[in-house]
Design a protein around this nucleic acid. Structure first.
Lengths: 298, 298
DNA sequence: TCCTTTTGATACCTTTGAGGTATGGAGGCT
DNA sequence: AGCCTCCATACCTCAAAGGTATCAAAAGGA
């Protein structure tokens, strides 16, 4: 038995006339008669009572009709649902982000995704770079925003934003008056960095910058959170951060670009070979709308 | 799309291996690959992720798998249910019977039917011959037990029992002593009959019998119910009844066979052209087990 | 690294069966 | 009675399902 037989049977049962049914199905009448006969032969009982001029459903036919309709509807439904899933309109995406991103485009991004894919279950988790990478590898996370270079074959990345680095220093710092700074001038300053285990690549990038400027940074504090700024404000040291932290407007900290305008990449990362349409939809959305700061105009 | 595609898809999804799936389906591997490809092409999205050695379901494929399984199960279920209906194992049968039959094989018959077709809703109604014929014609009744000849093209009949007629007379009647009676001897007796409108054919049969015996019966009472026997016992008259009324054992009434041993037919009647399998099953059962008196051995 | 094994895809052929046309035959209406 | 309607049958054509042989790529082992 094939779906064709069910489609034909439903048509005949509804028209109660082979001629009209065949017209509705877009085939000739004899093939339709044959298919119904074949179906009846396979089932082993009659679906129609042909003794009278006007054919009638047998009671078994009436029972079968209900099921046949249900089956055909279910096929339709299945195709639609699978298609939606395939288009990424269903499913779930777990997004990881570093605390620094909470102040930038993430909120707008999530809002846009919700709007476009209301049936996708969207979960977000604040995680360090390292934590995100682990979570992506283990499948707990579908996409993550990570900073700096990454070379891991099991993780695919795409740069979604390139932003300059800035120097953060207390508002009352002697050098705060300068509009631009040279890193070399800061050689003797104490530094406050993200703790290395949480974001090794970024940490190493900063160290490399200092090396290039001719010194090894005196790292006084490796802060675990974004409250690096508080430490800077409190005078524990200065820091080098992505420009987006400017969004966090504090009177006691100033940000200054510095010579060479080094920049860092914000990467969108996911498991290589992950074919989840929802994940792909998320990546596509990020590609399309980008990750903009809240204060930027689209 | 055909059921074949769903069957193949489910097999591949369960085996996650085209070779094993094709073996399970009893076809070669290349046709299976092609059918799955064709299905995917028709759907417009992939069901399997073939990038790795071991194929995997895509998320859309997983969604579709659930529906495909459901559809296939539903087809199976539909066939089974329709087959049961066709075999008369489902549905309903309304059986009519005359009051006289309540004392004979009806109870056993209904019990046997219940046992064999537990899912058929069985309803019984006590009706006169006339009432049954009307109810059968109007579709309120599926089968009925009626007595005597019937010639009505819209009703099909089958004789299920032939029984002799007996004369019922009060135990204290002068002629009660005779083992056999001649109807002629009763010419002057008052008679108690079923009322004609309720069973015209049977009534006329009795009158014809009397005519043949050379007299017109003096009908004193046309009783509406089986309590004819009570009237007979009370001395209102004598009666002619089917032998099965002997089942109603009363000390105040005796039954005597009479000359010529005339008999009456118990007919099973149904609407001509009624193809209801439940009705047919009932008729078949009656044919098989017959309508026996409770006291008869099968 | 290279070879083997496994497994899915491709190419090409065979055969089944679905659909088309022409026609027969039976029930129902005038 | 005769026609009309409508389903079934006979026969043909062709699309497509299934088969065989083979290739290509990925995983695993020496």
């Amino acid at each position: 038995m094939e779906l064709r037989h069910l489609r034909y049977f439903v048509a005949v049962a509804e028209e109660l006339n082979f001629g009209r049914a065949s017209a509705r199905l877009g085939i000739a009448q004899p093939p339709l008669s044959r298919q119904i006969q074949r179906l009846e032969a396979e089932l082993g009982f009659s679906l129609f009572d042909r003794s009278k001029r006007r054919i009638e459903l047998t009671s078994a036919g009436a029972v079968f009709l209900g099921h046949a309709r249900g089956v055909l509807e279910n096929v339709e439904l299945g195709v639609r649902e699978a298609r939606r899933t395939s288009a990424g309109e269903r499913g779930r995406v777990a997004v990881g982000y570093p605390s620094s991103l909470a102040y930038t485009g993430l909120v707008g991004l999530l809002r846009a995704f919700r709007l476009e894919f209301p049936d996708v279950e969207l979960t977000v988790r604040e995680l360090s770079m390292t934590g995100q990478i682990e979570a992506i590898k283990s499948g707990q996370l579908d996409v993550g925003f990570i900073r700096g270079p990454l070379s891991d074959k099991s993780i695919a990345v795409e740069c979604v934003r390139r932003e300059p680095l800035v120097i953060a220093l207390p508002a009352d710092h002697p050098l705060a008056g300068h509009a631009r700074l040279k890193l070399e001038k800061l050689a003797s300053e104490p530094f406050v960095f993200f703790s290395r285990p949480r974001a090794p690549a970024f940490f190493d990038l900063l160290v490399a910058l200092c090396q290039k400027a001719g010194f090894s940074p005196r790292i006084l504090q490796e802060a675990p959170q974004v409250d690096i700024l508080s430490l800077v404000a409190a005078g524990f040291g200065i820091s080098i951060l992505p420009a987006s932290v400017r969004e966090i407007r504090r009177a006691d900290v100033v940000f200054r670009p510095f010579a060479g305008a080094p920049s860092t990449e914000l990467l969108l990362a996911w498991r290589t070979g992950d074919t989840s349409p929802s994940r792909q939809a998320f990546v596509n959305l990020v590609r399309r709308v980008g990750v903009r700061l809240e204060t930027e105009e689209p």
